[in-house]
Amino acid sequence: MIPVGFAYERPSSVDGALALLAEHGEEASVMAGGHSLLPVMKLRLAAPELIIDISKLSELSYVKVDGDEVAIGSGTKHRTVEASEVLAAEAPLLAAVARTVGDPQVRHRGTIGGSLAHADPASDLPAAVLALGGTVVLRSPRGTRSVPITEFYTGVFSSVKEPDELIVEIRVPRTGGAGWAYEKFTRRANDWAVVGVAVVDGRVGLVNMGQTPLRATATEEALAAGASIADAAALADQGTEPPEDLAGTREYRRHLARVLTKRALTTAAGG
């Protein structure tokens, strides 16, 4: 299957991309690696009139320490995130979660910015950035703003990103030696997570447990109040309304969230 026809622009700079976005707004879609967008275009579930190709903008591809944070360019490929020595030292959770995205071919092509922008609650990376307490940096001709990831998502496939905005950077705190773990439950290695749980430094991010990536706040609060891992993990699904599909009923997902949270917290604690 092939996409509906579209016009194509390949700006040579971020500013060029922003100018095109400002001009075309909602008719345009930005494509980096294309691994979220092209599949839905091929199934004709999306039909943008204009594709703005930012896949060759090397200015968006970097991983660097910046003060207390690690800054990752939105065009950085999963494979680069996965193999980054900076991340291995400063925010190892993110590198490890990137390693579980899709398959090697997908990771050679897909980007962290594209994954976050797609706003799929079943994606791994948004929940990881959420657990890390990261920030999404958005640019438009109107300026640059930083949105905490906790405020970024508004629903399935939707976020506070305006049509003229581009994610240019993701920032995550340097967690260094803090305990971390990612538990991704799939039927097949290559499937989306039925449920995923990312843990770092006592924070818990949930994949595919609702309309957006979620924090297991009841678990986090219980841990902070000194609860045992088992007791805290038993609260992981509190307040969630996970989706139902062939891979899981709502009840099953809630159960998995509790089990995986217990496992992730145990691993993160060195158990």
Binding site: R188, N190, D191, L246
Partner: peptide
Amino acid sequence: VVYDADGNPLTATFADYGIPSAAE
């Protein structure tokens, strides 16, 4: 191969139909 009550196939792509890879 799964159909819903209206006869819609729910497993009509390789993303949904569970062919194993080497990893399984």
